[in-house]
Design a protein around this nucleic acid. Structure first.
Lengths: 254, 254
DNA sequence: TCTGACAACATTGTTAACAATTATGTTAAC
DNA sequence: GTTAACATAATTGTTAACAATGTTGTCAGA
């Protein structure tokens, strides 16, 4: 058993995709099969929750079994995932959860720092009272998850907060971008983050919520910029080279 | 011949994809076939140049012939294009060049207004002298194309300018986003723009170049913001509902 | 002449078998 | 005991045939 990354657990991990999130009670209302869009979404979620660590092999047969669909649909889903750089497709070798490099990590944070302050501002400007109530409820869930030490749930909700903001901003283009960026950020934290680091401190999220309540878009933008800087600062970019551990340097004598 | 959109010209349009842009002399150096990434890029270019207007049907067989590849590769390419919302995939009915709605158009411009000023600033900060020289050369080409009234070339170069900035900014994430947004903008202009409107006035691009030469990132960002506002302002959003003409309202009595 | 049903055609979607490549485990030789 | 070559197994990539759906043209009936 020389496996460095938990590729030997692929099956377990893949199966654990199934009971992920309720999503909808009846996903296939019209007798239609599960769509690749759903598969992509599910794998996104699993990556966000760090149940699929970087480098994990996503074998076609396992995914077919897990989702109960044909190979074609899995291949299409993997292609879509690779086009968003959440999955790396190696010819004749299969699909692997991406292992962002430090360079890519910086690029992701640069993109987020460009998009998210504006998204936060727009969200404040466009939020209905119901939206703000939802955010409040969400933050309570986040807090509970942190207290109950349900790490997966905490991480998931933490990412979901940023997605929620993009949804409130009501811009489908930026929402799609954010889904990709949040997912990749989870991979980045998995690689470059200290073991104890979860995605976000929910204190920061709380402050952003206050900006919503006082309808201060500029403050929300500023808080978001600070929040992102803080997350990036907690990472150790520039040390580890890649998600796949380099064996020769790791076990070299002396 | 009841065709509303030039779907009857599909074959001609598709064939005109072939001699598009030189790209590289030898695209298949290792005996490998043309990759779907190239196909996607080529269709992107054709859309940017408005040789593939919104609503154009992209039939699998025609594309197979045009690119000389199997159906599987075409289908994968179309899936990738649809994931970037440049192509719309209708079940059992085929692939069509997307027809952005006014709502989507506003979202695209909102995303560009969020991203591109920062991209311009970063590009100024990171541009080498060679980069600036390239920009100068590019602007000359743009100017020539306008004077020679080679509309296709002018449009292509006009979009290419924005891509160039993203390349100089050296952020792969934002570069990919911009390729998608520029392509979709071409579709939007095709639908909502006045017939005479090309993509950008190259005067604006010239001013941005001046900001590069004086290394004024803040000015570049401001000019870019103005530039985008100007383009969006030249459109007629809120009138036409979609690229596919609504027949009943068009030919209704009275 | 116009309408509606039907049939032939074309196009897309899916499946399964096959080919090619990679990974793994074994054996033999040094 | 270690290494290298080989053979086997597993996985991915491709092709082609088939099924299903949508489109179009035709014909009969009103």
């Amino acid at each position: 058993m020389l496996a460095i990354y938990p590729t030997q657990h692929t099956n377990e991990v893949v199966y654990s995709l199934m009971p992920a999130v309720p999503h909808q009670i009846d996903e296939t209302p019209l007798g239609d099969e599960i769509a690749e869009e759903d598969i992509v979404e599910r794998i996104f979620e699993a990556v966000v929750e760090q149940r699929l660590p970087p480098g994990t092999k996503l074998s076609e047969s396992a995914l077919c079994e897990a989702f109960g669909v044909g190979r074609m649909r899995i291949r299409r889903s993997l292609l879509l995932l690779s086009s968003r750089e959440v999955v790396e497709l190696r010819t004749n070798r299969g699909a692997y959860v991406a292992s962002p490099t430090a360079k890519q990590a910086r690029e992701v944070f640069e993109a987020r720092s460009t998009l998210e302050p504006t998204i936060a501002r727009l969200a404040v400007e466009r939020a209905t009272d119901a939206d703000i109530a939802n955010l409040s409820t969400h933050l309570k869930l986040e807090h509970d998850a942190h207290q109950h030490e349900s790490r997966n749930e905490a991480i998931r909700l933490s990412g979901q907060f940023h997605i929620l903001l993009a949804q409130i901003a009501s811009n489908a283009v930026m929402l799609r971008m954010m889904k990709e960026l949040v997912t990749r950020t989870s991979l980045i934290i998995g690689i470059f983050g200290a073991p104890s680091v979860t995605n976000c401190r929910d204190d920061d999220h709380e402050e952003i919520l206050h900006a919503f309540k006082s309808r201060d878009g500029q403050a929300a933008a500023q808080l978001m910029a600070d929040h992102l800087r803080e997350i990036e600062g907690s990472l150790d970019l520039g040390n580890r080279t890649s998600g796949a551990v380099d064996l020769v340097s790791l076990f070299s004598k002396k």
